[in-house]
């Protein structure tokens, strides 16, 4: 499925739109890690929590649960929160 990446992760993916697969959000992130080593820890911490300023949207709905089930045609967007300074 298509995954839209934030600009802060382009150093890993090289492009803002990538392909990845998984039946859950956790599997999708694992697939992204296989394709782009190191990317997972920048987004998910060691306790499997999505980092405070990162957000997942599936079909434009915000999702916090990594066990959220995905369908092949879902559109996943990984965003960085509008925060910082």
């Amino acid at each position: 499925m298509k995954v839209l990446m934030p600009s802060s992760l382009l150093s890993y993916t090289g492009t803002s739109r990538v392909e990845a697969s998984g039946t859950t959000l956790a599997e999708l992130v694992a697939d992204l890690e296989r394709r782009y080593p190191g990317i997972r820890f920048r987004v998910i911490d060691e306790q499997d929590r999505v980092r405070g300023h990162m957000r997942f949207f599936v079909n434009n709905e915000q999702v916090f649960d990594l066990s959220h089930r995905l369908r092949p045609n879902d559109e996943v967007c990984l965003m960085q929160a509008l925060s910082g300074g």
Binding site: P6, G38, F41, D45, E46, Q47, D48, R51, S83, G84
Partner: peptide, 29 residues
Amino acid sequence: TGHLGPTIFRSTNLGRTWEEASRPPAFAK
């Protein structure tokens, strides 16, 4: 960064090129 989690970057040529640590410091699950 302000948004992304922590990591360690490594260079063996005084900063001409950098590689990211494959397992940065992280607490036990």
